[in-house]
Design a binder for these strands. Structure first.
Length: 662
DNA sequence: GCACATGAGCTTTTT
DNA sequence: GCTCATGTGC
């Protein structure tokens, strides 16, 4: 096993005398280092798996880490081993220590749109963009461990001052709902450990060795949490690459790399510079591009691979043609090289770009998977259902109460809710609790009271059953009781209702199976729902082209990569150009390039629709910065007229026939 | 007082 | 294309 490891990798794995930082270039085997180190700690050092935690930033990375650890450890993740995201670890801590955080263990986790709505509710401001900006500001403060009092001092513009005024009430509102936002999942444990040394010690003794993936993406709060957990022992390995820092917008600070050296003077720094992933031409393009950035640590990636295919740059007429070209190219390439669909990835800057790509892939009968998945939980029908689940778990969750009681419509509208809300506000109780108070009879008229209490009783009955019956049966009964399917078909056109209902079926089926597999009831499932992404389940088996944002692609690799929309204004994004944040965009491009093993195709559009108007685009400066060893495709051949498309269709058909025959 | 229909505006990246 | 915001009928 060790035979596959190079010298620096072995050093990184075997070094256990103190804190270490592994600077791992793209494709240099950093996941291999982390997973082998876990195996080493357990097998060679005799550490109990329950005392080890590997922390990642995304669910996807956590899942891959688990699979690879299992691969090293005889097919199973060792019992008790923690491999999860920062936020999932935060949830675990806050749930277990809920009373110290003044929360009940069944607190709700709010997502981005919930928190924006809370800000809007507090300000009674209909301007959603402004609410969003203020929530953004508050989130930034929380990530930087800035209190409401400090925020008031720091605020240097009108919006920030307004947000500072809101901040404290925002926090009070969350607590009143017995809810936390994503930022709390990090900052609450930090505060907990600040205030309760004995709790901190307990966790330090539980998690005796920490491995942190993508360290360059930690924000201040996450770093503080890491320090609390690592304590003076400093038993941790942080793995990161400053060239792949792409989360500054979320408060990540590459300075944390420097800070680590300051705070742990004995920090052992190990560099991994041999790239195992990409052919030389791709690696050279990546190196040449990233050389345009100021470097924090000097690092030079090299590879033993051959030169490989030339990187291609293709200009397309517009985004439709771009998508069409990519789809045709995949079909043709697959036929020619006898590859699998899952060997291909299409990467893009923004989620909205996925739509056109999806359309074209469907047109050309190419199977695909979209990673990211968050958007699935953002769909109205899924949020409807989650509102019920959240309410079952935590009846103080007023946001969930309002959404559930009004969806589907059951004769309760704004008027009723306003009356109930103002009564609940006077009594300082949740909407749900107010429903059953005697005083509610004065606040509401007889019909309103009856309807509201009927709903309350309905929820109570479900709650009673939720801890006693299998999740799948309860979900079925819930859907039947609220007549969700009928409601969808009554007020939407059949196609839309069909699609929404099918999403609901997917979600319910998935949740039910998960409950049965893990032996969890509905309440327990709901506790983790905000943090998991459902699309994690099927990607290993399914043969489809991978669609992902550049951010979501980090940590993954593909034989053949298509990087689309590489234009000024998109990559680098206009807002980054305006704010002079080009370097992070360049790193994003670097991440995209370094995903590719064998071939890299870059496309850009001469015209792109921005809202209604189509506007003329320039190729991204990054294309030039990659150096001259690229093949620029002739523009005429890129307009996929019927000939190209026809050829692709035939190729596709033949591939299908071939598959059927043997 | 409530539900439904139409229209406008918006899209950077994630937990 | 998809959500939210506002106006009209029951």
């Amino acid at each position: 096993m060790s035979a596959h490891l190079n010298a620096p990798q072995r050093d990184a794995i075997h070094y256990l005398d103190g804190p270490s930082l592994v600077l791992a270039g793209a494709g240099s085997g950093k996941t291999r280092v982390i997973t082998h180190k876990i195996a080493h700690l357990i097998n060679a050092c005799g550490l109990n798996p329950a005392n080890i935690a590997a922390i990642t930033f995304t669910n996807k990375a956590a899942k891959e880490m688990q699979e690879r650890v299992a691969g090293l450890m005889g097919g199973r993740v060792p019992g008790g081993l923690t491999v999860c995201t920062f936020h999932a670890l935060g949830v675990k801590i806050v749930r277990q220590e809920a009373k110290h955080c003044r929360l009940k263990p069944q607190f709700s986790i709010l997502d981005a749109s919930d928190t924006v709505q809370i800000v809007a509710d507090i300000t009674r401001d209909a301007d959603k963009a402004r609410s969003k900006a203020m929530q953004w500001q508050i989130s930034g403060w929380k990530n930087a461990m800035v209190t409401p009092e400090q925020a008031a001092q720091l605020a240097d513009n009108e919006l920030a001052s307004a947000a500072a005024l809101l901040y404290a009430e925002y926090e009070r509102t969350l607590r009143a709902y017995q809810a936390v936002d994503f930022d709390d999942l990090i900052s609450l444990p930090v505060r907990l450990f600040d205030e309760h040394p004995e709790v901190r010690e307990r966790w330090q003794n539980k998690l005796r060795y920490l491995l942190v993936d993508e360290y360059q993406d930690t924000n201040r709060a996450q770093y503080t949490l890491l320090r609390h957990l690592a304590g003076v022992r400093g038993a941790f390995t942080a793995v990161g690459d400053d060239d792949q820092a792409i989360y500054a917008w979320r408060g990540a600070d590459v300075e944390n790399l420097k800070l680590l050296q300051q705070d742990y003077p004995k920090l052992k720094v190990i560099k991994l510079e041999q790239n195992y992933r990409s052919s030389k031409r791709i690696l050279t393009a990546a190196n040449t591009l990233i050389a345009n950035n100021e470097k924090l640590f000097d690092k030079r990636l090299w590879s033993e691979h051959g030169a490989g295919e030339q990187v291609t740059v293709t200009a397309c007429r517009d985004a439709e043609h771009e998508a069409e070209w990519v789809a045709s190219k995949i079909n043709a390439h697959k036929f020619e090289h006898r590859t699998k669909f899952s060997d291909y990835a299409v990467l893009y800057r923004g989620n909205h770009q996925a739509r056109l790509i999806e359309q074209q892939l469907r047109n050309q009968k190419i199977p695909y998977v979209i990673s990211g998945g968050q958007s699935f939980f953002d769909k109205a029908e899924i949020r409807d259902l989650i509102a019920y689940l959240r309410l079952l778990m935590n009846e103080d969750d007023d946001l969930a109460f309002i959404r559930a009681i009004t969806t589907p419509r059951r004769g309760i509208g704004a008027g009723t809710l306003e009356a109930l809300g103002s009564y609940a506000g006077r009594r300082h109780v949740s909407l749900f609790a107010a429903t059953f108070e005697e005083g509610a009879a004065q606040a509401l008229n007889a019909r309103q009271l009856e309807q509201v209490q009927e709903f309350g009783n309905f929820i109570n009955r479900l709650q009673y059953r939720a801890t006693r019956e299998p999740a799948s049966r309860l979900l079925e009964d819930l859907l039947a009781a609220i007549r969700y399917e009928a409601w969808l078909f009554e007020h939407l056109d059949p196609r839309e209702a069909e699609s929404k209902w099918s999403n609901v079926r997917d979600f319910v089926g998935w949740l039910g199976r998960k409950g049965d597999e893990d032996g969890k009831n509905l309440i327990e499932l709901t506790q983790t729902i905000a943090l998991i992404s459902m699309l994690d389940k099927n990607d290993s088996e399914f043969d489809g082209v991978q669609l992902a944002t550049l951010h979501a692609s980090k940590g993954l690799e593909f034989k053949h990569v298509f990087l689309v929309g590489v234009e000024e204004g998109l990559l680098p994004h206009q807002s980054s150009i305006d704010e002079d944040k080009i370097e992070e965009e360049r790193r994003l491009m670097y991440v995209g390039i370094t995903r590719a093993q064998r071939s890299l195709n870059i496309t850009w559009c001469e015209r792109r629709k921005a809202g209604k108007e189509a506007r003329t685009c320039e190729p991204s400066r990054f294309i030039e910065e990659m150096g001259g060893d690229v093949k620029v495709n002739d523009r005429k051949s890129n307009v996929p007229v019927s000939k190209e498309e026809g050829r692709a269709r035939i190729a596709n058909l033949m591939a299908m026939l071939e598959g059927r025959g043997g």
